[in-house]
Structure formats: structure tokens, C-alpha cells
Design a protein around this nucleic acid. Structure first.
Lengths: 198, 198
DNA sequence: GGGGTCATGTAATAGGTTACATGATTCT
DNA sequence: AGAATCATGTAACCTATTACATGACCCC
């Protein structure tokens, strides 16, 4: 089901969603994405934006509506959502909500190779991570608070709440992990088995 | 600091780590990655493997050690870790452990656009997600249990424990979210504001 | 009125995935 | 012996990121 999508970059989903509101040109899409803060959940960069818009056009999900050649600014092409684009938006979004996709977080990679590091070293590095995780959680809470006080409804902030939940979970996990790495048993065994390699 | 790395694909980190054990050819690397189950934490596919090995060679982190032309099998090139490769392995791994990187999970994208969906629909889709999340958590627990009973040390399973911690956190988060979506207040407001679009 | 930076887009390059190819082994 | 599968690698094709280009506006 996911395999049959003609465009897979998540940025394209955001484009479809914004075009649901009204037709606009790519640069404007990018501007709104940043202004609304959604670029913290969606990896955004201008080059990719023009690319996905072109992909969406080829796939028939958007159409060129008009090209403004108002002499003052570079020529801008305005795109509009098509019927198929609307369908794709709902279908894709509903799939993403209902079905967890397997992800490969970088920290998972690091953990899967953690036995390479000397236990004391690993524990100290994880301590540093804890500090940063705490700071990021604080920043996220501050963002949410500021937005809420500015009148933004909670539904437009759930991705931040989600991020916070993950940060907190990771914090707890790392705290426990550090403790395990400091068990004398593990330290001794590690030096017996891998010590020669360091 | 991360920007200066010559190779960035995490698969390359795993390659460096395995070559620390002994020199081997790419196919063998792939086989061990799968056998050890580390391919659940690291996105692995054969094409990418040959690509990153070549990148590592160009960067001077590995060298061609010999080419076996034992007539029975396709020609295989054995690669060995260089001094620089060893340095890079430790440096990269330590960075990954100590510093959280910003990630863009697909579910975050979906959440950032959740207001597009009708509340009742969204809640029902999230219910389905809960079921799958529970199943995945169960599978992960089973994997860990089986491996532990088979004598695998906990340190080789931490990435699974991490995955489990994230799955559980997401489960709790989604449970709460469903409740919020079912508040009459939200349902009414949504229909007032977005109802015309559906 | 020249130096930054905003607005907008295109082109060049690098990265990653899928598809293809081919000899060896094993199975029935 | 032919079919299926394993072992191994290369090539073609997409995707994504970076770098480049260019006119307008803004500020002392």
C-alpha cells in the first residue's frame, strides 16, 4: 500500500495539505511552513520543495494554475490541488496515522554498537546526552507554552507534545542504561572480553 | 562537527564496527548484519552496502586487502579497517551517543497535519494504531526474551529495549490523544472551523 | 548609490534504491 | 537434468541536497 505511492517524501504531504486551503506558489508554501513552525516536524529545504512540487505535478496531484509575471518579482507559478491530489492527501494521511512505520533513529544505531565503547566512557557520554535531552525538553515545553498563551489551539501543537513524550521516554531510558553500564559485573566482563581491542 | 564527516550513512558505521573484528568482504558484512539481528536498528540493503564500502574506501577508512578468485564463487574483495577508519569509528560513535540528533519521524508529520481529519475519523484510526503498537511491543519483548534465554548478553539487546521504551511511550501518548479528540468541545469547534472542507 | 538581504528559481552533484546479471549449489 | 535458491556484484534510475543565479527592496 505504501509502496504504490507515486511521491513518498513527507514534505509532499504538507504541500497537499496547504494547497487544500488555497492555491499558491512554492515559495509561499515554504514561507507558511516555516511561519507555522511545522518545519520542526517536517524536514524542509527549498531545493526539495521545488522537487516535490514537480513530482506532484507529474503525478497529477497538483496543476499549474497560472504564472504571475508581475514585473517586480521573479516569475512565480501558482499551483492548485486536483481531485486526485485531495484523495491522495486523505488516503496518505490516514495511512500514516493508522499504521506505524518502521523508523531507524540514529540513537538506535549507536546503541546497537555500544559494546564497542569502554563502559566508563559510554556512561560519561550518556551523561552528556541526558543534559541535552533535558534542555531540548525544556525548549519544547517553552514553545508549547508560548504558543498556547498566544491563542494557538492544542491540536496545532500535538506534534510538539509527541516530541516531548519521546524526549522524556528517552531520558528515562538513558538514565537506566547508565546505571547498568556502571555495574561492576558488566565492567569486569567487558574488559575480559573486549579489553584487548581498545 | 557532524558536517565534516566524509561518509554519513549509518550503515557505514556498522561496517567500520564489524571490520574492527576482522577483515571481510561486503557480502559477508551483510550476512553478519542480518544474522546478528542488527538490521532492525540499521537500515540495510545490499545496494547501499556496496555503495558505502566504496565511499569508505575513497575516504581512506578501509582498504582493499585482497581479491579472492577462488574459481567456485564470484570474485570477492576483502576489505580491512585502516587506522583512520578506527579513529572515525570511535569518533562517530561517541558523537552519536553523546549528542541527540534531530529526527523527523513519520508519525510526527501525520500529527502536525491531524487537524485535517475529522475528529471521529482520526480517533478511530488512532485506535487501530494502538493495536499495532501493542503487537509490535509484544514482538520486541519476545525477541528479547528468546535472545536472553539463548545466552545473549543484555548489552547486545539494548537497541531493542530502546525501541520498546519508545513504543510504550507512543502508546501512552496516543491513548491520551484519542481521549482529547473525543471531547465534545473539540468536535464542535472542528466542525465549525473545518467542517465545510470535508 | 553601493552593500546586504529578500524573493524566487534552476542546475549540478551526490546519495540511495531497484533492477539486472551470472555462476554455483542443492533439491527432487 | 531442470528448477529453485544462494552468493556475489554492477548498472540504471530516482531522490535529495548544495551551489549558483538574478532582480528587487531597504538602509544609512
Amino acid at each position: 500500500m505504501a509502496k504504490t505511492r507515486k511521491v513518498t517524501n513527507p514534505l509532499a504531504l504538507a504541500v497537499l495539505a496547504w494547497l487544500l486551503v488555497e492555491p499558491m506558489h512554492p515559495y509561499e508554501l515554504g514561507r507558511r511552513l516555516k511561519e507555522s513552525g511545522k518545519d520542526s516536524a517536517i524536514k524542509y529545504n527549498r531545493g526539495s520543495l521545488y522537487m516535490v512540487v514537480e513530482q506532484l505535478r507529474k503525478a497529477g496531484f497538483v496543476t499549474e494554475q497560472e504564472t504571475l509575471r508581475d514585473t517586480r518579482r521573479p516569475e512565480r507559478t501558482v499551483y492548485a490541488l486536483t481531485g486526485e491530489g485531495r484523495e491522495e492527501l486523505y488516503d496518505w494521511l490516514r495511512e500514516l496515522v493508522a499504521q506505524p512505520r518502521r523508523e531507524y533513529p540514529q540513537f538506535g544505531v549507536a546503541l546497537s554498537l555500544l559494546s564497542v565503547l569502554e563502559p566508563a566512557d559510554a556512561a560519561e557520554l550518556l551523561d552528556r546526552r541526558l543534559t541535552t535531552l533535558g534542555e531540548e525538553a525544556d525548549e519544547t515545553r517553552a514553545t508549547v507554552r508560548a504558543a498556547t498563551e498566544g491563542g494557538v489551539a492544542w491540536v496545532f501543537l500535538i506534534e510538539e507534545e509527541y516530541r516531548l513524550a519521546l524526549l522524556e521516554a528517552e531520558h528515562r531510558f538513558v538514565t537506566g542504561l547508565i546505571e547498568s553500564l556502571r555495574q561492576p559485573d558488566y565492567i569486569r566482563t567487558w574488559h575480559e572480553v573486549f579489553g584487548n581491542r581498545q
